[in-house]
Design a protein around this nucleic acid. Structure first.
Lengths: 242, 242
DNA sequence: CAGAATCCCATTCGATACTG
DNA sequence: CAGTATCGAATGGGATTCTG
C-alpha cells in the first residue's frame, strides 16, 4: 500500500492520454474535504457498486466471475476499476491460489471486514423502507447477510445451527447470542434449508411463519421445532415509509 | 402534514409511452437491480454528498445556506439536486416557517432519522482507518456525531450533561446509558465546553486526556471531575490500517 | 438569501471487441 | 476465464447568471 501524493482537486489539464484510462476521483479520494469518519468512509466506499462488492466478500473470498454473477448489472470494466480502488485503499487484497487450479480471489482485509456493521446497518435501513421486492434478485450472500442484519439473539435459548443451501452456495449459521455465519457444508446443522433461489428462504424468515406454505420452492430437513425457534429469533424492521 | 405532490418539475409532454421498456438510469433510482436492503439504501443515499447532507440534518433542521457552510465543497446546484432527490425518496421534507422571518428548512422524516445508526457505523469505520486529520475541517454537527458514534455508555454511573458550544452552534448532550444530543442552550449542563472550531473539542475526547493542554483553544466550565468522567465514557476505534 | 436555469467540459458508463 | 482496450453516449457537476 503506498500513499499517493494528493496534489489538488483541480485536475491537471491533459497530462497525457494515459490519464484518461486511470480515473481520478478515487485516486486519493478527496471529494468531500471533510474530516468526519463517515466522509472518509464514503471516499473509500462511496463510489457506485463499491459497498455491494464489499458485501459480496463479507462471507468469504470470491472470484471475478462470481462477483459478476452476484452483481449482474455491473460491467467488467467497472468491476475492475472498483476492485483496483478497493485494493488501493486497503479494503481488499488479491489472493492467488494454485491449489486445485490456478485462480485469483478477492478477499477483504481486516479493515474491510470491519465494514460489516455499517453495511448491515444500511441493510436494515433499506429494509425499513419497503418490502423486499421479490421481483428483484438477491444474491445468496445478500440473502444470508439480510438475515444476519436482523438477528435478535437467542434470548437465553440454546444455540441453533442452521444450514443453508442456496443454489450452489452452502452456508452454516450458528444462532447464539449473535449470529455467526460462514461458508461451509451444512451436514452437521440441526436444520438445513434448501432452495434454488434466495427468495424462498428469505420469505420464510420474513413472514415469521412456518415453512409449509413454501414447500414447493423450499425444502427443509431436520428438527422442525428448532426451525420455528430459529425463525423466531429474527425480527425485521417496521416499515417507516408506506 | 405537507401535501406530498411530487413530479412537479417533470412536465410530461405527451410522453405517456413506454415505462417498462426504457430502463431509466437514475430517474427512479435503479442502478443496482438488487433486492438487498443495502442496495436500496444506496439507491437513495448512494449519490455523492447525499449521506453527508443527511448527517448534517441529524441534529435538527437546517437551511440551505447552513448546509453549504457545513459542506463547503458542495455546489449550490448539487445541493439543490440532492435535496430534491432526498425529498422525493422521502428522506427529508421541506419546512416553511414564517416565525421570526420567512425561511425554509430541510428536516429529516422519520425514515430519514432512522438512517442515523448506519451513518454512525460508517463514521466508526472511517475512524478505524486513520486518525482524524486536523487539517481537514469538520462541521460542528459532524464533530458531535463523531462523539455520539463512539459513546460507550455510563457503565452504571450517573448521567452527565455536557454542553457544547462550537462557534455559533449550541448542543446539549446527556451521557446516560446512551448518548442523547440535541441543539439547545447549554446553560443547565454540568460541564460546558466551548471552542470556536470543532477540532479542539474532538481532540479532548480523542486523546482520553484532560483539557488543560488545550486551554488555548478550548475553554471548559463546570465540574472538572465530571468532565474527566465524561471523557472516559468514549472510546475510539483501534486503527486497522497504518 | 434561496434557489432555478444555462452552458459546457470532464468524468463515467455500458457495450463490444480483443487478448493472454 | 479474467480481465483490457476502445469508443460513443450519458451524466455529473463547476461556474456563472438570473429571479423572487
Amino acid at each position: 500500500m503506498k500513499s499517493q501524493k494528493v496534489t489538488s482537486n483541480v485536475p491537471e489539464p491533459e497530462t497525457e492520454q494515459q490519464a484518461a484510462s486511470q480515473p481520478r476521483p478515487a485516486e486519493h479520494g478527496r471529494w468531500y474535504a471533510d474530516g468526519c469518519g463517515a466522509a472518509f468512509a464514503l471516499e473509500v466506499l462511496g463510489e457506485r457498486w463499491a459497498m455491494l462488492i464489499v458485501r459480496e466478500l463479507l462471507l468469504g473470498p470470491r472470484r471475478f466471475s462470481q462477483l459478476r454473477t452476484a452483481l449482474p448489472k455491473i460491467s467488467a470494466r467497472v468491476l475492475t476499476e472498483r476492485l483496483e480502488g478497493l485494493e488501493r485503499h486497503g479494503v481488499i487484497e488479491r489472493q492467488e491460489v494454485t491449489e486445485p487450479v490456478p485462480a485469483r480471489f478477492y478477499a477483504l482485509t481486516e479493515w474491510g471486514r470491519a465494514a460489516e456493521p455499517a453495511i448491515l446497518a444500511l441493510c436494515r435501513w433499506g429494509l425499513s423502507a419497503r418490502a423486499h421486492d421479490p421481483g428483484i434478485g438477491v444474491s445468496p450472500v445478500a440473502a444470508v447477510l439480510s438475515l444476519k442484519a436482523n438477528y435478535k439473539g437467542a434470548d437465553g435459548g440454546d444455540p441453533i445451527t442452521v444450514g443453508l443451501k442456496i443454489g450452489d452456495a452452502r452456508f452454516v449459521a450458528r444462532l447464539g447470542e449473535t449470529m455467526e455465519v460462514e461458508r461451509g457444508d451444512p451436514a452437521e446443522a440441526q436444520i438445513v434449508l434448501s432452495a434454488e433461489q434466495p427468495m424462498p428462504i428469505l420469505a420464510a424468515f420474513y413472514r415469521q411463519t412456518g415453512l409449509s406454505n413454501l414447500a414447493g420452492s423450499l425444502s427443509a430437513r431436520g428438527d422442525i421445532a428448532a426451525a420455528q425457534a430459529a425463525i423466531a429469533r429474527f425480527a425485521f424492521p417496521d416499515r417507516l415509509t408506506p
